[in-house]
């Protein structure tokens, strides 16, 4: 499973994404380092508002215009943070494809499927004829398990799972290196979820693409991801291979997160949760952002931001693992 030797297709270096609200900037992503290698799937997990979706949309710079990007975000060795809209358009769809959470709202319901594909293909291959586009569309629809003749229909005529298949086909039609899947199965029922995840995984293999899978569902990442990055309040607090995260979590947040997965054991029906709520990202605390909810909190946690420590093949951002801390 370890794919530490593959070529890096995406690399975030101290990436910060601050977006503007009426009065202030929200530091939704506040200094993250992440490397995605060819053919690899990284799962980004965290609770709502931790910045995972901002990161996903930030890769394509889909956030509102006044959003500020600091640090570096290398997409196939090109730093996209300074790119303007017109240059960004060449990256979107072509280098990075994106799949959204709710296919009911992310596909224009009143534009025919074949037209959605045509306008996408035409944008990146000017001069392609409608018939050529249809041929390409037929092939990709076949791959995602939709009868090609349905391309003449409108998205509103498809079921949720089928729409998500169309969405996936649309994200893959230009053969991008990276697919950002933002909660791709959250709005689907469990059986369709599994189908969609399998489909994504098959397609990743046949296209040799890499996937950034953004989700709050630990079951979904368990199924698909090679590596997992746990986000909390704008930081990646821990990242490692999937097995390490699940069986030997380091960061207190990861531990508590894993404990709070509901199970079907009738003897253990009590739901576990993490008391408290994440800090405001407008003025985040100076120390560790998880400190206020952390059962292992030390005095240093409130005073200084914890460093990123390399440990056990992965990384953790916690004072517990720094040398000289002898509390644990």
């Amino acid at each position: 499973m370890a794919k530490n030797e593959g070529e890096a297709v995406l690399r975030a270096e101290n990436l910060k994404i601050h977006y503007k609200t009426k009065k202030s900037y929200v530091k939704a992503v506040d200094g993250i380092d992440l490397t995605l290698r060819k053919g690899e799937t990284i799962g980004i997990v965290g609770e709502s508002g931790c910045g995972k979706s901002t990161f996903g949309q930030g890769i394509l710079k889909l956030l509102p215009q006044k959003t500020k990007y600091y640090g570096k975000l290398l997409v196939r060795d090109v730093d996209v943070t300074p790119l303007r809209e017109n240059d960004m358009r060449k990256v979107r769809g072509k280098v990075v494809g994106m799949i959204f959470q709710d296919p009911m709202t992310s596909l224009n319901p009143i534009t025919k499927v074949e037209k959605l594909f045509y306008e996408t293909l035409e944008e990146h291959n000017p001069g392609i004829s409608f018939n050529e586009s249809r041929e390409v569309t037929a092939q990709i629809l076949q791959k995602v398990g939709i009868e090609p003749r349905r391309m003449r229909e409108y998205p509103f005529q498809f079921s949720g799972g089928m729409r998500q298949r169309v969405m996936i086909a649309l994200a893959l039609v230009l053969n991008p290196d990276i697919i950002v899947a933002d909660e791709p199965t959250t709005s689907l029922d469990v059986i369709v979820q599994a189908q969609i995840l399998n489909l994504l995984d098959e397609l990743r293999q046949s296209y040799n693409a890499s996937i950034i899978l953004i989700t709050h569902d630990l079951g979904v990442v368990a199924e698909m991801a090679d590596r997992i990055a746990v986000m909390y309040a704008g930081h990646i607090v821990e990242q490692n291979e999937k097995e390490k995260i699940y069986y030997e979590p380091k960061h207190p947040y990861t531990k508590l997160l894993l404990k709070s997965i509901p199970n079907t054991n009738p003897k253990d029906l009590e739901l576990t949760f993490i008391p408290g709520s994440p800090p405001s990202l407008v003025n985040p605390p100076i120390g560790c952002r998880f400190a206020s909810r952390c059962p292992y909190k030390m005095s240093i946690c409130d005073e200084k931001e914890p460093p990123v420590v390399e440990i056990d093949g992965g990384m953790v951002k916690c004072w517990l693992y720094t040398q000289g801390s002898d509390n644990q």
Partner: peptide
């Protein structure tokens, strides 16, 4: 403000489209 617009932009479509 809806996702269909974000999704259209995510495919690299130009503003006019």
């Amino acid at each position: 403000s809806k996702d269909l617009v974000k999704a259209a932009r995510a495919r690299g479509l130009k503003k006019r489209v």
